[in-house]
Amino acid sequence: MSGIASIHLVENALLVSIQDDVNDTEILELQDSLSRRIAQDNVAGVIIDISALEIVDTFVGRVIAQLAGISKLLDAKTYVVGMRPAVAMTLVELGMYLPEAQTALSLSHALSQLRSD
């Protein structure tokens, strides 16, 4: 059983929506399979939709930050879309930054940025 949605190929990007009930084990599995797919599918970007997430704590934040670092090494950009304002404010208070990740307000915004690259 998995609390995470499957990975979809949309245009030249991989799209994944993380569900709110995702646990630490599942998010590490996602990091693993997404990293493999970036190399395999030779995509320009990875779009991580976190609009369902009520919280992003230091563990999930770190996994997302690492994923962005991995995709950069594999020559793909990472977009984090749909972050709730309350989540953003809490991340700042935790002192968490996602340096390699681009943030975009919506999926279509992320896709149009990827197209124009």
Binding site: I55, T58, A86
Partner: peptide
């Protein structure tokens, strides 16, 4: 409020982990 729920449940997640 939403923001306070998010803040506190984030703290719970950290401590429980």
């Amino acid at each position: 409020s939403n923001i306070r729920v998010t803040r506190f449940s984030t703290a719970v997640s950290e401590i429980a982990r």
